[in-house]
Amino acid sequence: MDFAKKISLALAICFVFTANCYAKNCKKGIPCGNSCISANKTCRIDSYPVSGKSQPKSASTSTSTSTSTSTSAEVESSIVAISKQNFNTAKTHLVKIYKENPEQTTFYCGCNFSFDGKKGSIDFSQCGYKPRKNEQRASRIEWEHVMPAENFGRHLQCWQEGGRKGCKQDTIFNAMEGDLHNLQPAIGEVNGDRSNYRYSQFTKEFSQYGQCQSAVDFKARVFQPRQQIRGVIARTYFYMQNKYNINLSDSDNKLMLAWNEMYPPKQWECDRNRQIEKIQGNDNKFISEQCK
């Protein structure tokens, strides 16, 4: 057996041993990748054995070498497939997408922005944005999770034990955190102010960020997005709910249903969806079914 095959076999044995041990320790739910999720959840990550049901056991063979080689190949293929989708990789893809489409604007405030390498800068003069408090953070582009990380991470055991930091090495969380369909370019200050607040409609007056037509109520912990992106938000929430089995509250579900109907996809939403499908391998069907 050559050196490369020995390394592959060692990795495979280590991976399988670790996964089996973790599954045995998953007492409060069901194993999902290298994490543990609630028993009433379904683990849904493409190209990874994620069913809550036991996986079929492979039949024994007289040639252990061929079995080990096959197992090694399957394990390596799964690891590679999962590792490709994470937040850092997603940001690289998104910078490229928006460099090729420079006419697009920031998500919450509609400001023009551009990139110098991976660093994004914003033209406040064009959109009338005025920093509320944090001018330094307001000057940069950040990638906003439309559905907050807490919403899709809190049912994982890694989150329950250590929050977002506790999920840094969790492949399931990394795949959700790096899903391109859930990421949008935002002014850093607004991204920070939105935090993990739920979306809502509560005001007709907008003065917190100059002429930006989005608003936040810190006391009530709600965020009102501008009208132009409400449909995008709704279809993103439905996508995350469907792909990762994320529960929506009754109030969130009713709001998203209304926004989806009131604000159908514009051309850029359809184009972006197709571009992401080429990169990530899957579309957002809630957009696709409305795009001609």
Rank of each mutant, 00 (worst) to 15 (best):
F238Q: 07
A73M: 08
I141A: 01
F15M: 03
K254F: 14
F202E: 05
F113I: 08
I287D: 14
N191G: 02
E76A: 07
K219F: 01
S83V: 12
N151M: 15
E289R: 14
C158I: 14
Y209C: 12
G188S: 09
F286K: 07
S139L: 13
F15K: 03
Q280E: 12
K27V: 15
S72E: 05
R137W: 13
C43I: 06
R132K: 06
F206D: 02
E205S: 11
N88E: 10
Q201G: 13
Q85N: 15
K133H: 11
C291F: 14
Q275G: 13
A175Y: 08
D271T: 15
N260I: 09
M1G: 00
G210A: 00
S214V: 02
G120V: 03
S47D: 15
H93C: 06
T105P: 11
E289I: 12
V95M: 11
F152D: 04
I172V: 11
Q224C: 01
L94D: 04
A23P: 09
N134F: 13
N242V: 13
A12V: 05
K130Q: 02
C167L: 13
S72M: 05
K133C: 10
A186I: 11
E142T: 10
E150A: 11
S249I: 15
A138S: 10
Q55C: 09
R194P: 12
E74C: 11
S35M: 10
Q211A: 03
C109A: 01
K165E: 03
Q208S: 06
R44D: 01
L183D: 09
P264S: 07
R137N: 11
A39D: 02
C270L: 13
F286C: 01
T42K: 13
E142N: 11
G188E: 08
T89M: 06
L94P: 05
C270N: 14
N191F: 00
R154L: 08
L248T: 02
A175P: 08
C212M: 11
Y98N: 03
G166F: 01
D179E: 04
P225H: 10
N196W: 06
C21W: 06
E205K: 00
I287A: 13
V95Q: 13
N101E: 08
Q160V: 14
E74N: 01
G188C: 08
F3T: 14
V75T: 00
K91W: 04
Y239I: 00
F3H: 04
Q157C: 14
Q160M: 04
V190C: 01
E144N: 04
D179R: 06
N245I: 12
K254R: 14
T171K: 14
C21N: 11
I172E: 09
